[in-house]
Design a binder for these strands. Structure first.
Lengths: 217, 217
DNA sequence: TGACAATTAAAACAATTGTTTGAATTATAT
DNA sequence: ATATAATTCAAACAATTGTTTTAATTGTCA
């Protein structure tokens, strides 16, 4: 037997299982995904999951970790923007990066769907995910918005605006099937239209925040 | 055998099955829900589902219809507002109603979760749901916003703003577990805080639209 | 009441599930 | 090259699934 401790970088079937499981879990969810479907897509034997991960559930949490890491590697929180940039530029970069992660095609397209599933039907893996990934994301955005609103990051209005900005982005992650059916040609389909959508959301949010920061305490 | 056609109003076990199935489906999803769990909660025999609905899947689409009907009966699209009211008032009423449906407690609290599940993992029932429920909702909001922006409901900016408003609301439906973990005491807990949240979202959105309609295309 | 349909009940069925087993194969190191 | 460990494989296992069956029960109308 093999303890599931540290592995050398190369472990072909293990990685293939992670990739295949990511796709299948994203497509049909944890419970609906059969180990046979995963193993077949990975070109492995039915017993491979139990051998490499112990059981189906720990495979799932490993998949979440794996997807999380790859997505942030590819698209960091702020793309193409320096720390000294104006907060409005940072906001646009933040929104653009988030949308890029959401609309990512190819091998990592299942990352977003895994996240939404975890939101609706939390498993034990959600707690770690929130602390490792979601809270830092949230804090980064809160920092940007507090600069725009010119008030401390803990101010209630900052939290409220953070939610407003985030929600407009993740909307396209959680409701994509419905949007596709409602307005078939409205979903962005290439880099240009993603950037355009990012500009739209940024403009909407900045307009709102400008008003909120002037009119009041 | 009994054809599943029109039923008189009273059909005790059938209704109990609908209620029980609504809870169970919302809690664990379609596939994870076992007919045995549903029947037990309904106080019925294991064969009851097949007898009254034919199979588990048509029970599911009946549950969606049932939940849809009850939610809209309780909270119509626009609460406490007349057709002649100012569009800004209508917007607030629309947002408030939507949030009330989302945060509804008690026997219908599973309605929202059923919806989010359909979004992420669409079944055959989604098509009907979109045409019967989502598209009318969307059109009503588009009408309101076109009055605010003073441009036709088909304008691209209207659709964009509709999404921005909707997303801020359904965010609390789709991400509730994450929000609860991130900021434990931020989710609205009573009628007053729901109304406050509605006011927040309305103010944010109106501020954005005011700017957009002035500087404009 | 008594015949007939509608409904409920208990049991069994067939299919699929995650997991385990034990042998066969491959890789690794002495 | 050979012994030892790691990995793969086919087969089987035990549990759970939705569904069906057949009999018992209940309700309804003559």
């Amino acid at each position: 037997m093999k303890v599931s401790a540290d592995h050398p970088v190369q472990d072909a079937t293990r990685n293939q299982l992670l990739e295949a499981a990511g796709e299948v879990f994203a497509e049909v969810g944890f419970r609906n995904a059969t180990v046979r479907a995963i193993c077949q897509r990975a070109g492995a034997n039915v017993a491979a999951i139990n051998y490499h991960f112990g059981d189906k559930e720990t495979l799932y949490v490993e998949v979440l970790r794996y997807a999380h890491g790859k997505a942030l590697d590819k698209y960091p929180l702020l793309l193409d923007v320096t720390e000294a940039a104006a907060p409005e530029k940072k906001l646009q970069a933040f929104i653009h990066s988030l949308l890029l992660r959401i609309f990512e095609k190819g091998s990592q397209s299942w990352h977003g769907r895994l996240m939404s599933r975890e939101m609706i039907e939390p498993t034990a893996a959600l707690d770690a995910l929130i602390e490792e990934r979601i809270r830092p994301t949230h804090s980064a955005l809160a920092q940007i918005i507090s600069e725009i609103l010119k008030c401390p990051p803990t101010d209630a209005r900052v939290v409220s605006c953070v939610f407003s900005v985030l929600s407009q982005c993740v909307f396209y992650n959680h409701c994509r099937p419905a949007i596709a059916k409602l307005f078939p040609n409205l979903l962005p389909h290439d880099a240009a239209s993603i950037e355009k959508l990012a500009a739209q959301i940024t403009r909407f949010s900045l307009a709102a925040m400008r008003e909120l920061s002037t009119d009041k305490k």
